[in-house]
Design a protein around this nucleic acid. Structure first.
Lengths: 171, 171
DNA sequence: TGGCAATGTCAACAACGCTGACGTAATCTC
DNA sequence: GAGATTACGTCAGCGTTGTTGACATTGCCA
């Protein structure tokens, strides 16, 4: 077995030829290996600072939405406040992130990257986009559109909303 | 280059219109959110067993290449043997994986899923492919091709080789 | 003033990476 | 046949990052 070229999908019910078990399994493995590549370059940089991916994610989204609150960051990252706080505390201690008391609501903390934080963000971002740029260029514009379309469909609805909200807020 | 889409990128340097900083940043975020969705369903199942993603990966690749050795699995997963051993030991204790002494080389352990292991593999695989099937169906065949093309380009060369080796071995 | 929201923090725990060190059995090489 | 190498297992310890639960503070709001 293990083919599926021709005829119906092997697991009853699937009528579209391109959705064989084999195609789906390859999709799973592609995601696994690609995600490893996707994180490999920033991981090397983070290592030098003694940081991990959690720090990267915090830095990324603070840079993306300067002035964002802790609660908002919490909902984007999908972790507990204790988990985020541990990361945030260190970034603040290290002088990469600044937490300003909210102007309208003084309970809130508006998060910003410092100069140093922005420098690290750029280094991480450059490392990651370099690989993505090469991949996009090699695959071509249409492949990129397909790539994005499939990824969007793969997100949970809530995450999909977050994803689009970021773009709007970006301007 | 060689594009034809015309027009320069907004942030000097990038000559291809579809490779703006914004496109690349969206690509990064799409990967982040999509990977979360990608792992969400199996994670829920694993939780019931007290297993994590490491167990899932081991089960997946043992199922994919029955009889594979520990060393081979190590190179696919890219972790240390101590790390893999902790996971493998528990799967063997729990009766999901069987480690048979190698026939030609008795130092090797040929790994197989038991009936019970196969049952869990199917449950995990079904959960994950359901989402992927819906995403593929919604995005269409051409998007799927693009998706896979970009992911392949994003892998490290070594991982890319592993990825293709799996398909060949599958039959 | 009392209730709720936003935040921070202590403590404990688990999963899963890592390094380093050792031991055993089996195979390979000279 | 002796010695090197390979395959595997395991002990110990450590770090990041996730979790739950509990508690305190501050500030907004009705």
């Amino acid at each position: 077995m293990a083919d599926g070229k021709g005829g119906l999908g092997p697991r009853g019910g699937e009528t579209l030829l391109f959705l064989t078990d084999d195609q789906l399994r390859k999709g799973i493995e592609a995601m696994f290996f690609a995600y490893r590549g996707f994180t490999a370059d920033p991981d090397r940089i983070l290592d030098e600072y003694g940081y991990g991916r959690a720090h990267h994610r915090a830095i990324h989204f603070i840079n993306r939405s300067p002035g964002t609150t802790v609660t908002n960051l919490l909902s984007i990252l999908g972790v507990t406040k204790q988990s985020l706080n541990r990361v945030l505390r260190r970034l603040i201690e290290d002088g990469l992130v600044e937490a300003r008391v909210g102007a309208s609501d003084r309970r809130e903390r508006n998060l910003h990257l410092t100069e140093e934080g922005q420098a690290l963000e750029r280094a991480l971002s450059d490392a990651q986009t370099d690989r993505m740029r090469r991949a996009f260029r090699a695959a071509g514009p249409e492949a990129v559109a397909g790539f994005r379309a499939v990824l969007e469909e793969m997100m949970d609805p809530e995450q999909h909303r977050q994803y689009h909200r970021l773009s709007e807020a970006g301007r």
